[in-house]
Write a protein that binds this DNA or RNA. Structure first.
Lengths: 349, 349
DNA sequence: CTGTTAGCGCCTTCAG
DNA sequence: CTGAAGGCGCTAACAG
């Protein structure tokens, strides 16, 4: 019997039909026309008894566990992983799948074959593989064996479907916002890691300037590790110049936080004397700075959601094997707070 | 057959024994002494074939799904939920349980009976119910039906086992740290919500002063919503006084962040002119402030871990029904960064 | 010490 | 349009 002690035969008995019929109506098996009246009786009986199918029995019979595994690196570091889980879980629930979570083991040296195996041993029907930040990975061998999609990562061999943030688009949104506010000298505090975001945000930045006929001044583009302190150092340097920029686009919110400090030390008021836009929308930082930081949000929720939608699509078979070699890019929306204003004419050199 | 096509009978055949024997050795059933030699043969055969049992079949037979459900409020807001998941998942994996996650539905008006039901429908053996911050809840009715433990929450009716942070102990650690650094005038920027943390951290604060023979000055204890801005306002007020405190204990890291700003505006150097200790250890804030914020960490990982340990204990039956009415309190360790130093003698009124 | 046997609850051909 | 029967892979009595 099922979870609460009521089995399919109880429903059958109460409805006065056979087990088969109950199964048919409850799964609305196609090609089986049960009289509308019987249908209703069965449904009602099931509801009255609080019947739910025994998932184990069903899984055994159909060979489908109803489980989707999510392998996530470093769930605990930022709220980002949480938003992926949230999106994935909601989508899974909508399709009557259950999400099981496994933390990617830090020890296992990069490729998480063992963790994938754990999931496979648990008989998940498909797996989601989420990284902590947007990058390229070599997916473990055994991932090829199950339907899988990468979240916030692309496969080095291009063999797996993937969903990533539209970094270029996000940067375009940020810088366009600044340009439309009237800024023409816009500094860019970029990351110095060789990751997709570094390159693509730079492309977005340049695109916008280009499009608006603003010459690109390489001296306004600085790079450093994407932390608060380097952000501070870079901002100090840039803002100390006579022809300092009137606005700063920062690689992420942490660097922006450093820029806030630099501005404060230099007696520059944000946004009156200096506008700043960040990236990542880390609530804890962005919402708690003075003034609130206007920034670009990463679509973690949406990526999680998209990924399981894709997976159930694949599992239901009604999707042709989609082209895995081109990752899906999801929009990064601008989140407006209080750190952007029109530039003031300030002292020229 | 199991996941990869190999079933127990394949193992039996390869090892030259019956499936019963295989089952016995693989589950090392007590009271069944199989010759050490046969044992080895079976193990080796299983390993060679990469055999793993079909969980669905096992679940059906044993009526145990091997699933533990985690119902978590607002997974996405802070990294805190992530750490609970991390702890819970690791413990679950260690006991060969699988963790399934469900987001507590915001809509369902407080009591998450529907979400619990979702988990029950999924046939979890037990459920973890985690709240977003330490508080008292009325657990949904249907939680009584399964083994369950509360994380970061206590049951209003005291009917469920619970694990929460040792708020008093955390506050004691924080304030003791300050006292030992030489401070005697220590302000407390407290929350003004009626939640356990508010009251218990205050108790800890007073305990320490008491123990060290420092008179309690109620004018040094201020309350406001536990956000950055109120923290700033309160700190401004307190620090503007002639007999201002030499140290501040803040209800949380967000309030501490506000205090940093106040100190900066007043030209007070941290930690030279003012020491600050926070609470929560929100990495994003604490590690990115200048100087790094010394704060108290909440034991989220440990609570998640403790909770599933408790659950598997309960499930294995070898635990007497533990006293549910006294929540387990886990230690909140101090995390030292750079915001505390010995007080300087400053101008007296 | 090891093998035989009987289901767990459900879905699914196949008959009626 | 509805019912009867078989079996998914595994475990747990019970024999031998």
């Amino acid at each position: 019997m099922a979870v609460n002690g009521v089995g399919i035969r109880d429903v059958a008995k109460l409805a006065g039909v056979s087990i088969t019929t109950v199964s048919h109506v409850l799964n609305d098996t196609p090609q089986t026309r049960v009289s509308a009246e019987t249908r209703a009786r069965v449904r009602e009986a099931a509801a009255r008894l609080g019947y739910g199918p025994n998932r184990a029995a069903r899984a055994l019979r159909t060979n489908r566990s109803g489980l989707i595994g999510l392998l996530s690196e470093e769930i605990a570091t930022t709220p980002h992983a949480g938003r992926i889980i949230l999106g994935a879980q909601n989508a899974a629930r909508a399709h009557d799948f259950t999400l099981v979570i496994v933390n990617a083991d830090r020890e296992s040296g990069g490729s998480h074959g063992d963790d994938v195996q754990t999931l496979i041993d648990r008989q998940v029907e498909a797996v989601l593989y989420a990284t902590m930040y947007h990058r390229q990975v070599s997916a473990p061998e055994n991932l090829r064996g199950v339907p899988a999609v990468l979240i916030d990562a692309t496969d080095r061999d291009g063999a797996l479907p993937a969903v990533v943030p539209d970094e270029v688009g996000g940067a375009v949104a940020a810088v366009t916002h600044l340009v439309e506010a009237g800024h023409r000298r816009i500094g860019f505090l970029n990351n110095d890691d060789d990751v997709p975001a570094t390159h693509e945000r730079l492309i977005g930045y340049k695109n916008v300037l280009h499009r608006h006929g603003i010459p690109i001044d390489e001296r306004l583009i600085l790079q450093a590790p994407s932390e608060t302190l380097p952000g501070y150092t870079l901002a100090r340097e840039l803002l100390a110049r006579d022809d300092r920029p009137t606005a700063l686009f920062c690689y992420n919110d942490r660097m922006a936080m450093g820029a806030y400090r630099a501005a404060a030390e230099l007696g520059l008021d944000i946004p009156r004397d200096l506008s700043i836009v960040g990236f990542d929308n880390q609530e804890l930082i962005a919402a708690n700075l003075f003034p609130g930081l206007t920034t670009v949000a990463l679509p973690h929720y949406e990526m999680g959601e998209w990924a399981v939608e894709m997976l159930v699509h694949l599992l239901s078979g009604d999707a042709e094997q989609l082209p895995a070699d081109v990752p899906t890019r999801l929009h990064c929306p601008l989140v407006t707070r209080g750190s952007v204003a029109a530039p003031r004419e300030h002292r020229k050199a």
